[in-house]
Design a protein around this nucleic acid. Structure first.
Length: 505
RNA sequence: GCUCCGAUGGUGUAGCCCGGCCAAGCAUACCGGCCUUUCAAGCCGGCGACCCGGGUCCAAAUCCCGGUCGGAGCACCA
């Protein structure tokens, strides 16, 4: 019976089916097509609220890549309510730039990320030690004094190191001595027992604490037994009550490692999500490299417009909302992808265009002499979409000089009429511009922009490191904010400093 | 090599879990047109994709198997 109906339906053409539906089930057609919006998928197992975290290492300020994890976490906490913890992971003193402790919160603030709690791991050594003791007492950890090569070799072969069989009492005693005696501790590690036959060697008995004799910017020489990231992360994720963890898929293996600690302690695991890696073209993302460049004077600082830091990007005029929309649109799937400056810029343009004042900036200026027979006034809107939004006003009379770009001037043909935007027409004769009326009569002429005689020298720094020199119309000098230099692109101007940063076209 | 992921137009994505509203939507880029005293914005139109091969099924982008390609990890970094 069912079979017959199916066969019957399948035997009909699309049109026939549509017709039948239209006749018998009109309400089906009325159903609207799903509104296309970019919305992040819902999280699994959400209770009353969520607790999420961002866990950057303090090796420098945040850059465009970091903004993804910040936005994603923030979006979900905003959706479900709850806590968003900023946890600074500074358990490797070799990899710390002290400035980061204050720069990271500033970057997050700029991005509009609402941090509700702050945690710094270097405040929590006693907690990690205590958790280690518990695991040791339950036989899940041991103190190891193998040298690195030895330990590695055994691991690779899936064999136990001689210390693995130590009794819990021996381990806790050794650990106690490690904590109180630097010298004794040196060369020893604390290892978490996992599975010596785990197919992935890195997951077999992994190191949870190592001894580093280097001073820590925050704790000095008070501690020398440092937890590794996988240990402190697992402990903190539990103790801080994390319900959902979102991070890059480069942490996939780390998640497996951390799960052992949850299992041993009978802790409830958070829901894990791993988003794919993003390649960001034309961006130098390594904090150490940036830092070296700053030290050597190659870059002016973390806010150098050639860098992809949040600081630099904000100085160039990117809106916080741009980051948010871009990453929400990118979603949270595990596929790797390539960052698109085109799309990023287009989102930004949509946000800033309505509020960007227009100015004339003439790169590589060429002077042109014009004789105005009558007084003429240029009244140029600050924004073409806002008739009441104010205007720039310039007056001309008699013989005067104006400037146009070198590029434009080279394209003039003999006897051609050129429109100087919002000012007048000129006719090009033997290298001179002759006034040809102020009325806007012809539509099919070239329209170019210009600046008046008293324009000011001005520069635009581009993110590729090049500098464009030119002239800015005088009324632009006091502007502060994102502007559009007509026919040039959007820039971020700063009041009275004689230069702007290029944003995008 | 081993372990684990993944594969939709040039790019970013929606759809995949729960097969039929998908001859695949949106955005961006590009091309054309309109509008415009900016090469911006806006409006209209166009181009363009389910990695390959099998299987299951009345029906596969969606489920299964194999292949190919790509990525991540294989640290006393985070």
């Amino acid at each position: 019976m069912i079979r017959e109906v199916i066969d019957e339906v399948n035997s009909k053409s699309e049109e026939e089916i549509s017709k039948i539906i239209a006749e018998k089930f009109p309400e089906e057609l009325a159903r609207e097509k799903k509104l296309q919006e970019h919305r992040l998928p819902d999280l699994e197992n959400v209770g009353e609220f969520v607790v999420m975290r961002m866990a950057p290492s303090p090796s420098g300020p945040l850059h465009i890549g970091h903004s993804r994890m910040a936005i994603l976490n923030d979006e979900y906490v905003k959706r479900y309510g709850g806590h968003l913890i900023l946890r600074i992971e500074d358990t490797n003193p070799k990899n710390i730039d002290p400035e980061s402790y204050s720069m990271i919160p500033q970057d997050l603030k700029f991005l509009g990320v609402n941090v509700t709690d702050n945690v710094i791991q270097s405040d929590r050594f006693p907690i990690y030690y205590e958790q280690a003791r518990i695991l040791m007492e339950n036989g899940h950890m041991y103190v190891c004094s193998c040298n690195p090569e030895e330990f590695r070799k055994l691991k690779l072969q899936g064999e136990a190191c001689p210390h693995r069989s130590q009794k819990p009492d021996e381990n806790t005693e050794l650990f106690r001595k490690m904590l109180s005696d630097r010298k004794f501790a040196t060369g020893k590690t604390v290892v978490l027992k996992t599975d010596l036959h785990h197919p992935n060697p890195s997951i077999r008995d992994w190191i949870a604490f190592r001894v580093l004799l280097q001073d820590h910017p925050r704790t000095g020489n008070r501690y020398w037994v440092y937890p590794t990231m996988n240990f402190s992360v697992a402990v903190d994720d539990h103790l801080l009550g994390l319900t959902h963890v979102i991070r890059g898929k480069d942490h996939l293996n780390n998640t497996d490692k951390q799960r052992y600690i949850f299992r041993y302690n009978g802790w409830k695991e958070p829901e894990y999500y791993h988003y794919g890696l993003v390649r960001i073209p034309d961006a130098m993302l390594h904090a150490s490299e940036m830092k070296a460049g700053i030290r050597s004077g190659k870059y002016t600082g973390w806010g150098d417009v050639r860098l992809p830091t949040i600081l630099a990007l904000s100085r160039r005029g990117y809106a916080p909302e741009t980051f948010r929309r871009y990453w929400v649109e990118s979603g949270m799937r595990e596929i790797d992808s390539e960052f698109s400056w085109d799309i990023f810029n287009s989102i930004n343009r949509e946000i800033i265009d309505p509020v960007a004042s227009r100015y004339f900036f003439v790169p590589s200026p060429v002077p042109i002499s014009i004789n105005f027979p009558d007084r003429i006034v240029a009244n140029i809107l600050l924004h073409p979409g806002k008739k009441d939004g104010g205007a720039r006003r310039y007056e001309f009379h008699g013989k005067t000089t104006i400037y146009v770009t070198n590029d434009d001037s080279r394209k003039f043909n003999e006897n051609e009429i050129i429109r100087l935007k919002d000012l007048c027409n000129v006719i090009w004769h033997g290298g001179d511009a002759e006034f040809a009326g102020a009325e806007n009569t012809r539509k099919d002429v070239k329209i170019i922009h210009w600046t008046p005689e008293n324009s000011i020298p001005y520069e635009v720094d581009r993110p590729d490191g090049t500098v464009v020199k030119g002239l800015l119309e005088p009324l632009g000098s006091e502007y502060d904010g994102v502007a559009q230099f007509e026919r040039f692109g959007y820039v971020r101007m700063f009041r009275g400093n004689g230069k702007a940063y290029f944003l995008h076209r």
